Structures are given as C-alpha cells and as structure tokens.
Amino acid sequence: EPLWIRPDAPSRCTWQLGRPASESPHHHTAPAKSPKILPDILKKIGDTPMVRINKIGKKFGLKCELLAKCEFFNAGGSVKDRISLRMIEDAERDGTLKPGDTIIEPTSGNTGIGLALAAAVRGYRCIIVMPEKMSSEKVDVLRALGAEIVRTPTNARFDSPESHVGVAWRLKNEIPNSHILDQYRNASNPLAHYDTTADEILQQCDGKLDMLVASVGTGGTITGIARKLKEKCPGCRIIGVDPEGSILAEPEELNQTEQTTYEVEGIGYDFIPTVLDRTVVDKWFKSNDEEAFTFARMLIAQEGLLCGGSAGSTVAVAVKAAQELQEGQRCVVILPDSVRNYMTKFLSDRWMLQKGFLKEEDLTEKKPWWWHLRVQELGLSAPLTVLPTITCGHTIEILREKGFDQAPVVDEAGVILGMVTLGNMLSSLLAGKVQPSDQVGKVIYKQFKQIRLTDTLGRLSHILEMDHFALVVHEQIQYHSTGKSSQRQMVFGVVTAIDLLNFVAAQERDQK
C-alpha cells in the first residue's frame, strides 16, 4: 500500500453525458421521505430548503428570480454533511469501515464536522487534520463531537509532509485500522450531490432553472449537481466560483495573481482535486475576500440567511453572472454553511477592521482624538531585521541585547519573508524542534498583521487588541530589464502597544 495517494490523481470516472444510468458502476440512493420521529440526527441530513432572495437581486438590477439552496440546514450545519454520511455509508457497505475503526480526514473543517457527527452516532474514533487558518468555532464544535484535532501550517503546499493532507496520511500509516475516506478522491463525494442535492433542486424548481452558481473546494458539490442538471435540464448554465489565490478556475489566465492566501474558508485549493470535473462548468468567476464577507453580511442583514463567507462569494458572483438572465428565468445559488463557524471572524466588526474589510468610518461609535491620525505620526525608528541564514542562537542574543521581542526576517534585497519572535524561538528550542545552530528560517511564521503608514491609529489599535505587534510595510514598484514591473513589500518598522501608548501619553502631556 502506498504511503500516500495524491489528492489530485487523474480521475478514473467514466461518467458521460447521455450515458444510461443503468451502466453506472456505483451504488445510487434515492431521496427517502422522513418519518415524523427521526431514529437519529443523521436522518436530518439532506432535504434542505430552497429560499427566495428578495432584496439583493433587485438591489443589483437582476431581472431573474434568485433562489438560495440553504445547505446550513443540514444536521452539522453545512453541505459537507451529505458527503460525510455518504462516504461512511459506502465504506461500511463495501466492508472497508468496521466497528471500532478510526476515521482520519484532512479538511478545512466542515467535512470534519460532518464526519465527527456521523462518527459520534456510529461509534468510530475520528481524527481531523486541518490548517491553522480555520476558525476556532470549527475546532470547538469538533472537540465537542469527540474528534481529535491536529493543526497544520496554512501556507504548507498540499504535497508537503507538513500539509493537512501529508499529516493525515502519516497518521494513517501509524494508526492500525485507520482510514482516510479522502473527500478529494472519493466518488461518494460527487455521488452524494448527484443522487440527492441535484434531485432536490430539480424537484423544488419543478425542473425549471436557467443558471446554477456554486463555490468550489473539493469540487464534489458542483460536479455532482452539474452532471445531473446537464442530464435533466441541459439549458442550465453552470457557474463556478473560485477565490483569488486558488488555481481551480479555467482558463488558467484567471488564476494569475501574486496573491497566495485568502481568508474565506472551505473553497479554493492549490491543486485540482480528483473529484472535480471542470468540463461540466460553463464559466468560472474569481471572487475576493472583501466581496465575500460584504455579501455574507448582506445576506444575514437583508435576507435573514445566517450563512458563512463562501455563501457571500457565491452570491457576489451570482449578481454578476445572472445579469444575462431575463424576467421569468431563474438562478439558484448554493449557500454551503452557517455563520456559526465564523462568529469571531467576519461577523465581528473588530475582525473586519483588522483585516481591512471594514473602515473605521463605517462604525458610528465615538472615537478618541488620536483615532484618525496616521501611523506615520508615530515617528517610528528604523527596524531591526535579520536574514533567514542567521542562526536561532545568534538571533536570540541580538533580540535580548537590543531589547526586542520580535524581528522581521528579510532577504538580501529587503523583501519581507516573515517574522521571528523570542517566545516562538525559545519554545521551539525547548520542544526540540530546532537547535541553536539551525537557521532562523526554520522558525519563520507568517501569521502576523501588516499595516501601512497611511493607515489610521484606530486601525492599529484594533490590531493591537488581539496581537502583540504589527509590521509596518510599504510597497515598492521595481522595474526589470524586460520592461515588466513587480510590486514588493518592504519593512518600514515594527509597532507595539507600548509605542502607541507612549505616543498618546506624550501628545497629551505636551497639550497640557
């Protein structure tokens, strides 16, 4: 057995438009009618409502009807409940999964919650491996369901041993009777949507819809739904939504950006999952974080739909894509998950301010006199920076000697690579993860907040409520011999709460 199987392995699926269902090699399930009293909570997966979006479509000038398939009504709160249950049931049916076995899954959280929910009911041990950027709410729900959680670096490539995929496979090879159901490759993922989600949409719309818009992560949702719609409703256009920084969209030119990270969760990847059939997507749109969270908040405030950030991405694209539809036509959007997962993220004004998705003037509360002053007023001194090749031991000596707790790590040209902190280095040394002679590049981390000289002290204040420091950066445009230009970030300084307090105190003292 291989040590790991690539999540982007070539698909062996034989589905073709027009091929009889009787030739399918898979076990198919028909939607079942729910009894009045459910035998367990797993029976509350599927049969989610279709809700008309009344205000947002009109606000953006849509002539067509805009409908939302509300997947956050599933038992675990997301569309991923469907595939989690289906993968477990299919693994039980073919004898792969037996009582007492362990389920391991690399996930952005929602599939993990679905699997942990099913594992709690069915009696399996469950280990979820997820990147650090995923919300604390997801972690809390997983723990409450009895799952064990392993976190991995957000910026690790999918084929790196440190990625959530790599760590999951390492655990599988170490733990007896453990299984990775593997949402990236498992046919049960798109089949769950082909058999149930798509049929529900067709039934709820009486077979009449002209466009379907869905955000894409593993691709199982859009693949399964689109294949069924292509068979039953061939005139329906399928629109895929991919965040900026991901590479799922086609044509490839759409993916060209210097951005590699994004805040919206559960969609987009740096590889093409095996289950994603991009041939059934008629057109791709890219979405960005700001519009995703703005539209998610709009869905909550104006439509009462308590959905997550990827739902915002989907609707932001839908109001663009559906401009081509006329009166009497219908566009369906998939709202994948609930706001429950993001209470401390985009639902929080403070978080939105820190990330730059909300401006101070958007909030009406009274601010102190210094709130709208610029960061450049602080008069920061030149920063202490270190090269990635310097040793951890030497870096600790320098920081202690100069009285700093942290320093930016830059390359020879001064471009920011990340940050090192005294606390992080000492804990890594004590844990045996690094040696004093190791290069400081081994303990770089990139989960820090950046701020510009033109940003306000109010925004800085919000950042420092949650973080010990902020890195002050400025952009530099560099022209190359080819005539092309590129933008790079340079370090201007490091600012802490002490710097802000000293500035405010000094100004008030001078005024007296």
Rank of each mutant, 00 (worst) to 15 (best):
G240F: 01
V241Y: 05
V241T: 12
G245T: 06
I247R: 08
P251C: 07
E252R: 15
N255Y: 08
Q256Y: 10
Q259I: 14
Y262I: 01
Y262P: 06
Y262R: 01
V264W: 01
V264F: 01
V264P: 05
G266Y: 01
I267L: 05
Y269V: 01
Y269I: 01
I272M: 09
P273S: 01
T274E: 01
L276W: 05
D277G: 09
R278I: 01
T279E: 15
V280W: 10
V280F: 10
V280G: 12
V281Y: 07
V281P: 10
D282P: 14
D282G: 14
K283D: 08
W284P: 01
W284Q: 04
W284S: 03
F285T: 06
F285M: 01
S287T: 11
N288I: 12
N288L: 11
D289S: 01
E290P: 09
E290C: 15
E291V: 14
F293R: 01
T294K: 05
M298S: 03
M298W: 10
M298C: 12
E303P: 03
L305I: 10
L306M: 10
G309C: 01
A311D: 14
T314V: 11
V315I: 08
A316D: 09
V319M: 12
A321Y: 08
A321H: 14
E327N: 01
V332I: 09
V332W: 01
I334K: 06
S338Y: 01
Y342D: 04
Y342N: 05
M343S: 05
T344L: 05
S348M: 12
W351L: 05
M352R: 06
M352N: 04
L353A: 10
K355L: 12
K359F: 09
K359H: 15
E361W: 13
D362L: 09
D362K: 13
L363Y: 01
K366C: 13
K367Y: 08
W370V: 09
H372M: 04
V375E: 04
G379D: 13
S381F: 15
S381Y: 10
A382D: 01
P383S: 13
V386I: 12
I390S: 09
T391Q: 01
C392H: 05
G393M: 11
T395C: 01
I396K: 04
E397P: 01
E397W: 09
I398G: 14
L399N: 05
L399Y: 13
E401G: 11
K402W: 01
G403S: 14
G403L: 01
G403V: 11
F404N: 01
Q406D: 01
Q406S: 06
A407C: 12
P408F: 06
P408H: 03
V409K: 04
D411C: 12
D411S: 10
E412G: 10
E412W: 08
A413M: 13
G414D: 08
V415D: 13
I416W: 05
G418H: 12
M419A: 12
M419G: 09
V420T: 14
T421M: 13
L422N: 09
L429T: 01
L429V: 10
L429N: 13
L429C: 14
A431G: 13
K433Y: 08
V434A: 15
V434M: 13
Q435T: 15
Q435H: 12
Q435E: 15
P436E: 11
P436S: 09
S437H: 15
S437L: 13
D438G: 13
V440R: 01
V440K: 04
G441T: 01
V443T: 15
I444P: 15
K446F: 12
Q447R: 11
K449E: 11
K449S: 08
T454C: 11
T456A: 12
L457I: 11
M466N: 01
H468Y: 07
H468M: 15
H468G: 01
F469L: 10
F469G: 11
V472Q: 13
V473N: 12
H474P: 05
Q476R: 05
Q478F: 14
H480F: 11
H480K: 08
T482N: 13
G483S: 12
K484S: 14
K484E: 11
S485E: 13
Q487L: 10
Q487R: 12
Q487S: 10
R488C: 05
R488D: 06
V491E: 09
F492H: 14
F492Y: 12
F492M: 14
F492Q: 15
G493A: 15
T496K: 06
A497S: 14
I498M: 13
L501V: 10
F503L: 13
A505C: 01
R509M: 11
K512L: 11
K512S: 13
